[in-house]
Design a protein around this nucleic acid. Structure first.
Lengths: 227, 227
DNA sequence: GCAGTATTGGCATAACTTTTGCAAAATGTT
DNA sequence: AACATTTTGCAAAAGTTATGCCAATACTGC
């Protein structure tokens, strides 16, 4: 599974205890760039979820870099995490004030560090919650189960993904294009009509007979949304 | 300035070094609840941006609490921050795995702590959906929703685009030609009269009965503008 | 590997919603 | 008042979505 895009800014990615080596082991697939590259450009084109900056190895003005990353339209949504072996008050406060989203003091246990990163990634992609409860519907991602009013509902693979997507951002309107991309994946030859059909079947299983829909609303000309 | 809603879960908010006292000094206005209250309910109704849980003072199962907060639709967007005087690996990892967004070991310098909280609040703000607010009208692009005085208004696709265009640059006068281009696109054979019709219907739905128009003004011989 | 079952994709048509522009009425301008 | 522009009601036209159905594919148990 995709754990999220990570960009690491450090000078010596080869050393055994470098951040990139640490994350490689954990199944992340981080990209690396060093201070000599144009960090801002790399970040803007890669659009990583996380940007890890090792303060020891960056010569340039880190605060300036942070501020730029947060101001640039392309990168402002990436979480910036600073790592340093120092941790005095002034430094930490300055880090956060410059726009950093987290500050980690080295050395840190690998497990703690990874857990922290995962938490931040999770916070960015709100829909990675394991369980969602909406109205009388309960969705369990791990068990791949859906219950309505406590009673299990049998959904097929696509139906489940569809429901999960819609419910993960309730009220948000998803266009068919978006749905196709998120449920079927990028390179699909499935048409918009197919989305309709699956919506229909999902509605049936959720027990929608009457109007207006209790769960899935059609936004004419636009898409669908979970109420 | 509003610094964000904070809910603190601790048993003894009165003690001098309690979290709530610490934050009071910093200009935050945290609410407090203790383990005996129904934390979930309080959180769901308050919808705080931040939920601070002092692990020392909570008797109930903290992990369970975290998980519940993250599953419930009302509270899952609140950032949950755990505080503890312990910080061993197992505990920290478990905290993040249960859904916590941050883990802070006590004691911590007030300034560091506050800087961290501000960073988290800032990040949450960034993730909020963009809304345009004009007078008592609220337009939400992601949810494809328009509200007037809090009450939802049902707009069709074109009506929505039209309103969005006009409201996005208030006071600016849009010619019909401009409107046609921006709402319908370049290569259309739709006449100016059609724009009028849509303006009319939009006015109707916005509840414009009397003169002069409260929202959409006609500039005779020129076009329309949102007031 | 086969037969039976479940799932999926999408066509065709029905049901429904939205859009369009004419023509008449109303309003604004000079 | 004479003319230009905008507003409005209406019905036809265009567009979108729902649904029944069937074929293709995937899955399951033997």
């Amino acid at each position: 599974m995709d754990k999220g895009k990570i960009l690491i800014i450090e000078s010596h990615p080869e050393t055994p205890d470098s951040i990139s080596n640490l994350l490689d082991d954990e199944g992340f697939a981080p990209a690396t760039t060093d201070e000599n590259d144009n960090v801002l450009e790399t970040a803007a084109s890669e659009k990583p979820n996380l940007i890890l900056i090792d303060m020891e190895s960056v010569r340039a003005d880190v605060w300036e870099l942070c501020r730029n990353l947060k101001e640039d339209y392309e990168t402002r949504k990436s979480a910036v995490i600073l790592l340093s072996s120092q941790s005095d008050e002034e430094l930490v406060v300055k880090a956060f004030e410059s726009g950093a989203d987290d500050f980690v003091s080295k050395p840190i246990s690998k497990k703690k560090f990874v857990a922290r990163l995962k938490a931040i990634l999770r916070r960015m992609e709100r829909n990675e919650t394991k369980k969602i409860k909406v109205k009388d519907i309960e969705i369990d991602l791990d068990e791949h189960k859906v219950k309505k009013a406590g009673k299990p509902i049998d959904l097929t693979y696509i139906q489940f993904k569809l429901l999960y997507l819609l419910a993960s951002r309730r009220e948000n309107v998803f266009s068919r294009k978006e749905i196709l991309e998120k449920v079927w994946g990028r390179k699909v030859y499935v048409t918009n009509r197919t989305v309709d059909v699956h919506i229909k079947r999902l509605r049936e299983k959720l027990g929608e007979y009457k109007y207006p829909s209790q769960y899935i609303e059609t936004i004419h000309g636009t898409g669908y949304r979970f109420l």
